[in-house]
Design a binder for these strands. Structure first.
Lengths: 241, 241
DNA sequence: GGCAGCGATTTGGAGCCCCAACTTTGCGAT
DNA sequence: ATCGCAAAGTTGGGGCTCCAAATCGCTGCC
């Protein structure tokens, strides 16, 4: 942190340090704009810019009329992604396990594969696919969005069916799921997501692209979107002896 | 997007929409501050605030003296986390597989377990632990940070040893790793990380907390930090018949 | 003692301005 | 035709101000 750095960064760095090393615990008040200008000898612009950066980093929250406060360490609810695949656990049991009431809705649609989805399912051209959109809620608050695509000729999922039903339905077609590949990365939430998941600005989402394979053929692909700072994806791998 | 929203959000929403729907492709120039004030009929403050928000979201980059541009869609290099465990693949082979030259450094230290680490390793009190810090590079650019902790009485890792060596070393103590549990979430990079990984502001990181279990006992825990928008973690799970 | 209401503070939106450093462009001279 | 340079445009830091809405503490009244 050279002294030639912009002054607002000096303020940001100093406050951030106090937050991460714990000398400013969650809930502690941050000096107001006016106090910061005096304390650090900076202008008001620098002071408010520093507060905005810290806010957009999710470290503090501002309450109009009151002040800025260190944000409560987000409750990192583990979401056991594995349960989603587990043929024995009911849908949403990862949420229930946290003591929250799990609910979910889904919408089944028949549509054409977009180029992106066609490529992921190794379909040639715009073949018909079944799209299922899920919203998972814990205690009524949405915690996870998922969109699943499968070739339409696999038959429609039954109304009350769990996603795991896919494996059973495929088995009826003589197709056995042998491998699941997931790609995880972060990105900025897109318009419908930030509304549905009620995301504050500055929060990124975890995007999971999952594909079920039967031999060398993909038979289902889905996108799972989770607020990245509130939930953990938990992966459990058994080590083969 | 009600009309009572702050005007800068109107600008943000409009530009963001054009970026995500592709009418502003990667590399396309964003109107300058002066142009935005004219185009949207807003003040300069609102225009620059809008650009700052979009920048902190990682959607655009500003080049001093030139302008703001839609950020090149990040090259999402898959990082096969699984390779990290694979006893047959050499360390860094996930990076090599992308056509990049993989290098890595590590620093081995003996230290006291912090309360957090002691809890993760189920140690009572501040027991001595071995801490190993890794920096992984692809073509010289850092792509991943990792910090590994294990109880000190397991013996020091050999100088050229791969992380997988842990499993072999544990076997020598009669301890067999049976399960690996990983928790994945996003967070804001902390001071040393943003420097080492050369992260622009607004980029979040993927944080992976991994613990190796031998029966019901944790024998190693590590924190892996990856720039969340540039790399994908890839998980491959074989489905048991 | 309890409570209502007023005034001081605070955030967040918005406007305008100045300046240094850098890039781009176009003009003019060779 | 090419080169160099100056002017214009652009970002990013920083400053100052005004205002609406919300909050909080304190004072004074009942």
């Amino acid at each position: 942190m050279a002294s030639s750095d912009p002054v607002y960064l000096r303020v940001v760095a100093d406050i951030r340090r106090q937050i991460v090393d714990g000398s400013l615990p969650p809930g502690a008040p941050i000096p107001s704009r006016a106090q910061l200008t005096r304390k650090y000898g900076v202008g008001e612009t620098a002071a408010r810019h520093a507060l905005r950066v810290l806010t957009s980093e999710g470290l503090i929250v501002g309450r109009v009329g009151s002040g800025h406060y260190v944000r409560a360490r987000p409750v990192l609810l583990p979401l056991h992604r594995w349960r989603f695949h587990d043929p024995y656990a009911p849908l949403g049991s990862d949420i229930t396990a946290q003591g929250a009431r799990a609910t979910w809705e889904r919408r089944v649609e028949r549509t054409e594969a977009t180029p992106d989805i066609a490529q992921r399912l190794r379909l040639d051209g715009p073949a018909p696919v079944t799209r299922v959109r899920y919203v998972f809620r814990g205690d009524g608050r949405p915690v996870q969005l998922a969109t699943s695509y499968e070739p339409a000729d696999l038959g429609e999922p039954a109304a009350e069916e769990n996603p795991r039903g896919l494996i059973a339905r495929l088995a009826a077609f003589g197709v056995k799921v042998t491998e699941i590949v997931e790609q995880v990365y972060t990105r900025v939430p897109q318009p419908p997501e930030s509304d549905v998941l009620a995301l504050p600005t500055g929060v990124h989402v975890l995007h999971v692209e999952r594909t079920h394979w039967a031999g060398d053929r993909p038979v289902e692909t889905s996108d799972i979107v989770v607020p990245g700072d509130r939930f953990r994806l938990v992966y459990t791998h058994a080590v083969q002896p």
